[in-house]
Amino acid sequence: PDPCHDEGGAPRACVPGLVNAALGREVLASSTCGRPATRACDASDPRRAHPAALLTSAGGGAGPLCWRSDSLARAPLNVTLTVALGKAFEVVFVSLRFCSAPPASAALLKSQDHGRSWAPLGFFSSHCRLDYGRPPVPATGPAGPGPEALCFPAPQAQPDGSGLLAFSVQDGSPPGLDLASSPVLQDWVTATDIRVVLTRPTAPGDARASEAAVPYSYSAAELQVGGRCKCNGHASRCLPDTQGRLACDCRHGTEGPDCGRCKPFYCDRPWQRATAREAHACLACSCNGHARRCRFNMELYRLSGRRSGGVCLNCRHNTAGRHCHYCREGFYRDAGRALSDRRACRACDCHPVGAAGKTCNQTTGQCPCKDGVTGLTCNRCAPGFQQSRSPVAPCVKIP
């Protein structure tokens, strides 16, 4: 079954499945141990290396399982982990599983433009005002009308000393917002890159670890970015394109990495994101098979009651009109052929002497005849008339 069309072939909204968008993606860590090599970590020795690739690999290797930062002895204690998702995803959650004590504060950021600019998704700290200048999130949840980056409690250390930083996009958005109908929420969850900034390590008995002199390193095993490949409801899967870049397998007459625009000939109405109720498929222009290109005209679209705004370009086969639905001057409709037939329009073929012009009636094909001349192409004298020698009055009354 085609997820993007129903049993009758009608388009319906479809979305790719929920995946770990970070799986197999490269992670850039601002600090990784092993250069220079120490007793515990050697980047050049696979058995003792702790590369950032371990955060997003499926595991199963023989070496260590955790990425580890350099030892951080004094401020700044920031370590940044950045993962490029390859294209836009609609993020549902982000999690980072630590191998050692989780940080006392961390920030989660997203980029929507492949790393050129960043915006916060959330903060995690036991001292929100001190670390990020923000109030802790109220127990009642988000209070604003739209989603916002809030400051949540820092992840708790588990009995084994590890911890989990977990963030759900719902944590930052007020209840009642629906992804399908809220452009603000759609924007909030959209990300091409995810960045975790580990701001401050946990220091026993000291809230301000930046003042601690004890060397510390962050260590984490798995970074997950749960989300759906962003296809705006017009694709059920994402595939690598010819250049190896991930792109939606677009349906509904759409194209682009996120199915974010209509295909060139599918511009009879403006592009729209699909909703649960309406697929908003891009519609092909109606050109009766006589044009390969068309353009969208908003004024015509409004005048049509928001039904059709496509205007066919370069009508072929001697057709003309917005939909290539009538014959161009000098041609007439052959009633015996379908409008879509390549030979639907026949040349008028008006007689060069008997006709008063070259343009015939577009429906009947009747040429304008001079006095005393008859026939569809004006090529015969009418009854009671005979041919003269004058090309100006080719038929004269028989005396």
Binding site: V353, R380, F385, P394
Partner: peptide
């Protein structure tokens, strides 16, 4: 009655040379 088609050879183009169609 079906009349014969116009015979182009019968026309005298002497005074209408500029109207004469190219054949």
């Amino acid at each position: 009655e079906v009349m014969p088609t116009l015979d182009m050879a019968l026309f005298d183009w002497t005074d209408y040379e500029d109207l004469k169609p190219e054949v």
